[in-house]
Design a protein around this nucleic acid. Sequence first.
DNA 1: TGTACTGTACCGTCCGGACGGTAATGTCAA
DNA 2: TTGACATTACCGTCCGGACGGTACAGTACA
Lengths: 200, 200
Amino acid sequence: MPCIESVGMTSDTLSTKDKILQAAAEIAKEVGPVHLSLDAVARRAGLSKGGLLYTFPTKAKLLEALVEQHVSEFDESLRKEEAARNHGPNSVVLACIAVYRAEFLCNEPEPSGILAAIANDPGFLEPIRRYNKQLLQRMRENAEDPTLAMMVFLTIEGLRSLKLFEMDLLSKDEQIAAIDRLRNLFEPVDAQSADVPVTA
Amino acid sequence: MPCIESVGMTSDTLSTKDKILQAAAEIAKEVGPVHLSLDAVARRAGLSKGGLLYTFPTKAKLLEALVEQHVSEFDESLRKEEAARNHGPNSVVLACIAVYRAEFLCNEPEPSGILAAIANDPGFLEPIRRYNKQLLQRMRENAEDPTLAMMVFLTIEGLRSLKLFEMDLLSKDEQIAAIDRLRNLFEPVDAQSADVPVTA
DNA sequence: TGTACTGTACCGTCCGGACGGTAATGTCAA
DNA sequence: TTGACATTACCGTCCGGACGGTACAGTACA
């Protein structure tokens, strides 16, 4: 279960688009989405403002890309995990847990860009809303216990929201324990692949 | 389990402070936290900008009040529910579930003001972080099964975050079902007080 | 010759906040 | 009981700065 980030790219060789997206997320996290200015993004990304606006003609397009990137990255990982489980019963729930577990172990940065986008215009939530609705639907249809699947969804959503707001309430071990306990509800322990041990 | 809102006050008799806070939350929800301007808040609250600035000398103070109100309202309800359970085992978890259930049935508006505050300055998260840390601690110490308590916390956090972002993925009945299923993990069904039936 | 920028200058708008009123309601002292 | 002043709760205006976006001339590389 490899980390998704940095597939052959170090932070120097990121495409201009990705550099901008990353810079925007960083600034949003540091100073708050309100103070996410194009000037600041350009500076952080190592571009001129002209260059930034060449890549993303408006701020809205930038934010849109931030949301789009987030959703599509997650979906891609999810589809892979589902396929690895041959789309059998509970595969969607288990894939969801696996993806979250993986990105957690990867120390993926929280998607502060999402917050920035939402803060600028609640309308940016719509794609995420649509995606989540469809995901939850698929989880339940594919699960042997749909209600339990919903609980898993909510718990992961809880973990996500803690991470989004940088609420370091749970230690890394505790979070992993929570994730694994969720998984055990669906999958017998001996069927699990040996995962990377957690060393805080 | 009465609704907390409107304790003897209709929307006309709200104090100036409360009118402002309410107006701010509404506007933040409508146009997004970034575009929450003092002018707009003043207009909505039926004040001049000068009057608004008289009540809250800076925007930061307004946002601070928004956060403070949210935390203290929750804490007040929580303490009451705990007391009603005589602070016995699992009382914190059960109180937490009860409070969330009650405010859910009350159709409490989502605390969009919180998002606005965070959007302006991530530093506003600190009080919430502190509060949650202490709450989780208390939940676990008081619970017979601390890990399960943590799961409950996360699930409620998930429900909260869905509401915060207005993700209408779950119907009202489904959400109530989820909450009650959580409660059943801690409390035998026959010990529960007869709650208001849900009629969508 | 085009693509992908850099750099600078500039415009219009929006917003936070300061400031100077002012009307109503006390308070107190002669 | 009346005049002098204080306090509260606002109103309306204005200013400086930040920000999004435009325009355009230049440049390096392929």
